[in-house]
Amino acid sequence: MSISSGQSGAFWFLKGARGIASLPAIILMSAFVGFCGFAVEAGVPLGEAVFMTGMIWALPAKVLLVGSILAGVSLPAAFITVALSSIRLMPMVAALIPEIRTEKTPTWLLLLLSHFIAITAYVFTMERIRDVPREHRVSFFAGFGMTVTTANIILVAVIYSTVANLPAMVAGALFFLTPVYFLTSIWASTRDRAGHIAMVVGLALGPLFHQVAPEFDILYAGLVGGTLAFVIDRFWKSGARS
């Protein structure tokens, strides 16, 4: 088998790249059509919209950045807004890395590839990674992440000039697609009970903290909700045992 392992890396990379035709990737692309419309509406030029897509990649962060540009806020304020909303990337990446790396995977490679992690790549990878042999998981993820990012950069460049003519109802539906897709796919890909509890608690705490501390709502909801779910799950387990 060791003879074919060199080819296998490329094979799994391509297998990941083929994820471009999967439901998550197609939905993400539809969401990017919605984002592109928002960027046009906000007056962000084509070059900058394309640049954002490649450099930020995470969709909610881009929406917030465009919002900050629209509001005319200062650079430090925009940085803080986007950075606060993106803290969620840290636990996502931290949860994904142990699933894909081997002991031999160099850290620089993971740092480089981490750029392609956003909600869709996280959900897609978590859903399928168990079926990929461990030594090829990094290739599989790289294939998917790079292909989907590149495809969306091209998509934004191509549709920018036509997207402004999108009917309002279609544009609204495109913005709605993202949360519905996240909700169902994260629920479907969550394997442990703690994850399902975290989902329910997070859905409730998000709007609650939005009323109390709108600047940090996501962060608080994540930390409090995640910890609560973790503790409930532990008690549940120990209760079942005794």
Partner: peptide
Amino acid sequence: LTWVRSVATALLAAVIAKL
């Protein structure tokens, strides 16, 4: 790792609710 994953999931859920 279970705790980190729970926090990640709760964060995403909060994003969904806000969207």
